[in-house]
């Protein structure tokens, strides 16, 4: 279980996060949802250990990690632009971390990850030769091979188009289920957040606007921001789809 207690962060006098307090259960997918500049990426970096906190605590399985180095927390992230190493091929990227800690994953396990992510035909390819979705899966594999205790994903779908988006969405869900992996996702897209996660943390101007399941957010929006920013968008989308297909598909 991941627990954030009263987390605050400022950059040069400017408050970016204020009194963030929440608990995430093991195996849950949680989305951090908010407009750009809301502080959601900062929160992700704080959990990862990349950004220091001014105030508060990060506790994982009853252990206080607030002042533990990023490297020693045992978490891992897939960046929005994947940060794959272009001088190595897909396979070399996937096993990069094994050079440092050989016993993290056995050859057999690596093979399983590769098969699970359907990367076998692409292993010899250079990063430049991969499509967006393939890059995303290579980055996921590279991260999973290190067996993180917590998986962080920064805007995992924003660089992908249409159909690929839906398939990666399913993939992320099945990873969380298959490996019982607590997963935290940053996104600015309400539809993505609500269809992908068990719980959603809506952040606005550094504060928690609402934290709840998709059902709670749709049916009991806590404030105007959730209504205006989150629900309004979904309603417009729904209206557009209705107009295309007709009311009978409601």
């Amino acid at each position: 279980m991941l627990e954030l207690q009263n987390i605050s962060k400022q950059f040069d006098q400017k408050v970016v996060l204020e009194n963030i307090d929440l608990k995430i259960n093991s195996g849950e997918i949680v989305s951090l949802l908010g407009p750009s500049g809301s502080g959601k990426t900062t929160l992700l970096n704080i959990i990862l250990g990349l950004t220091r906190i001014d105030q508060g605590k990060v506790i994982f399985n009853d252990e206080d990690l607030s002042h533990v180095d990023m490297k020693n927390r045992g978490f891992n992230i897939v960046f929005q632009d994947y940060a794959l190493f272009p001088h190595l091929n897909a396979y070399e990227n996937i096993v990069y971390g094994l050079r440092n800690k050989k016993d993290t994953a056995s050859v057999e396990e690596v093979r399983e990850y590769i098969e699970f992510l359907e990367l076998k035909p692409h292993l010899k390819k250079r990063i430049g030769e991969l499509s967006g979705g393939q890059k995303q899966r290579v980055a996921l594999a590279r991260t999973l091979v290190t067996k993180p205790k917590l998986l962080l994903l920064d805007e995992p779908l924003s660089a992908l188009d249409g159909v690929i988006k839906e398939s990666i969405k399913e993939r992320i869900k099945s990873i969380a289920k298959e490996f019982g992996l607590t997963t935290i996702i940053v996104t600015h897209d309400p539809e993505e957040a609500l269809t992908l996660s068990d719980k959603i943390l809506i952040i606005n101007q550094g504060n928690i606007s609402q934290f709840g399941t998709p059902f709670e957010i749709i049916n009991q929006p806590k404030n105007n921001f959730v209504k205006e920013f989150i629900l309004r968008q979904l309603q417009i989308k729904r209206q557009n789809i209705y107009n295309l297909f007709g009311e009978k598909y409601a």
């Binding site: 891992n76 960046f79 971390g97």
Partner: peptide, 26 residues
């Protein structure tokens, strides 16, 4: 890519190692 050092670190490299294994070859 500004994320390489962080990625390297999360994959178990120290900074010098990431420079040698990733930054320099690129």
């Amino acid at each position: 890519n500004p994320g390489w050092e962080t990625s390297g670190e999360l994959l178990g490299d120290n900074w010098i190692k990431t420079v040698y294994r990733v930054i320099l070859p690129n």
